Simulated scan of single mutants.
Amino acid sequence: MRTVAIAIFRGVQALDVAGPVDVLGEANEFLAPEDRYDVKLLADTAGTVRASNGLTLAPHDTFARGPGRFDLALVAGGPSLPRGDAPSGVTEWLSDVAARCDRYGSICTGAFALGRAGLLDGRHVTTHWQHAQQLADQFPHARVDFDRIYLRDGPLVTSAGITAGIDLTLALVAEDHGPQLALAVAKRLVVFAQRQGGQSQFSPYLTAPADDTSPVAKVLAHVMAHIRESFTVSDLAQIAGMSARNFARVFVQQTHITPHEFVERARMDTARKLLESTDAPLKTIAYDCGFGTSDRMRLVFVRRIGATPMQYRERFRATLQRRGDTGAAREESQR
């Protein structure tokens, strides 16, 4: 039997806990008793833990009284972790238990607890797309991947945001018992055994500048307002009222990306909004967003998010079909 510990704490994200637990619980339905997963929730104290959504979780044991070794030890995420509010008990437990586990890691923002335990240095890791830059800033020796759904670097495993804990746990089940079992579990949970693309397809590429009156902010606004046009660094520098060389340097300092990268991200975000909210043909969207051709747009989509524009539209098209609308459509078709 494989022993699994999941660290929980006040304000934990409930789905970070429930997702992996349900994957392992479903896997147990297919496994012989000696091959099953024995899952324990551990916390600082024996009392119930209130999750960020208001649910209460009951730990099986405390960090102090729980077994000293597990086949797999995970820490769940929570909204407070990126702000530095990880309970000291979690950090101490991770520092101690990691050396005695075959595999250890995090779900979502649990990566911040791993970082405070000194377990991310030199490692390839991921976390929720919304907090990936924070993780990279707080732990500069970690190699943060902003796009991956989950990662394994030696014994360390990390997952992206929230439901990605399911993806990670399915991958671990496949590693332990083969892909067929992981597929059977995924079918039971009505999820993909292996999700296509990375988490970039769920995240916006652009964020508002800190100073919306700066020359760089003026350039950003101009590009978004004229996204169909082509731009060179010289063009953008002229809008900012700066030399091309100085503009490129200042732009990178303020945005952490090059002007070329910004323009491509802006085109991507605009195209994604149109794919989600309109039925416009791909060639029209490509032209309106400055890609020029649908083939060019397709290449950029595949490179950036691992999906074609059509695949993206199929996954994220905002359709809401009410029961009455269906009936009305049927009546219209019969006239």
Results as ranks from 00 to 15, higher is better:
335 R>T: 08
91 T>L: 04
268 M>K: 07
252 V>H: 11
233 V>P: 09
293 T>D: 08
257 I>F: 01
85 D>C: 05
47 G>R: 13
98 A>F: 12
39 V>M: 09
165 G>K: 00
302 V>P: 00
246 N>R: 11
106 S>L: 03
264 E>H: 13
83 R>I: 09
86 A>Y: 10
72 L>F: 07
63 F>T: 07
111 A>T: 07
195 R>G: 09
104 Y>Q: 03
314 E>W: 02
27 A>D: 07
60 H>N: 14
44 D>N: 11
196 Q>F: 11
325 D>S: 15
152 R>C: 12
173 V>N: 06
210 A>Y: 03
280 A>L: 14
267 R>I: 07
80 S>V: 08
95 S>I: 06
37 Y>M: 10
254 Q>F: 01
188 R>I: 10
4 V>T: 07
281 P>K: 10
334 Q>Y: 08
24 L>Q: 09
187 K>T: 15
104 Y>G: 05
135 L>N: 00
66 G>E: 10
332 E>C: 11
235 D>P: 03
43 A>V: 12
164 A>Q: 00
330 R>H: 12
196 Q>V: 13
65 R>V: 07
28 N>F: 04
108 C>I: 00
171 A>T: 09
229 E>D: 15
249 R>G: 05
300 V>W: 05
61 D>N: 15
282 L>I: 09
84 G>W: 04
197 G>D: 04
19 G>M: 05
59 P>G: 08
221 A>W: 06
299 L>V: 13
191 V>K: 05
56 T>A: 10
279 D>K: 15
318 A>E: 13
189 L>Y: 05
100 R>F: 13
298 R>T: 15
242 M>T: 09
126 T>N: 00
321 Q>M: 14
311 Q>R: 03
91 T>W: 02
8 I>L: 09
42 L>Q: 06
208 A>Y: 02
130 Q>I: 02
293 T>P: 11
140 P>M: 03
49 V>R: 07
207 T>E: 03
221 A>Q: 14
247 F>N: 05
55 L>E: 04
304 R>D: 14
219 V>R: 04
294 S>M: 09
207 T>S: 04
69 R>H: 15
91 T>F: 01
146 F>Q: 02
111 A>Y: 09
246 N>Q: 07
219 V>P: 00
178 G>H: 11
223 V>I: 08
240 A>E: 04
278 T>G: 10
88 S>Q: 14
73 A>V: 13
26 E>H: 14
290 G>R: 03
153 D>F: 03
216 V>S: 06
296 R>V: 12
286 A>V: 08
318 A>G: 04
58 A>V: 14
311 Q>Y: 02
92 E>C: 05
16 D>S: 10
143 R>W: 09
332 E>T: 11
56 T>Q: 09
80 S>L: 13
66 G>V: 04
310 M>I: 13
123 R>K: 15
214 S>P: 11
104 Y>N: 07
43 A>W: 06
142 A>C: 06
295 D>R: 15
102 D>E: 15
66 G>W: 00
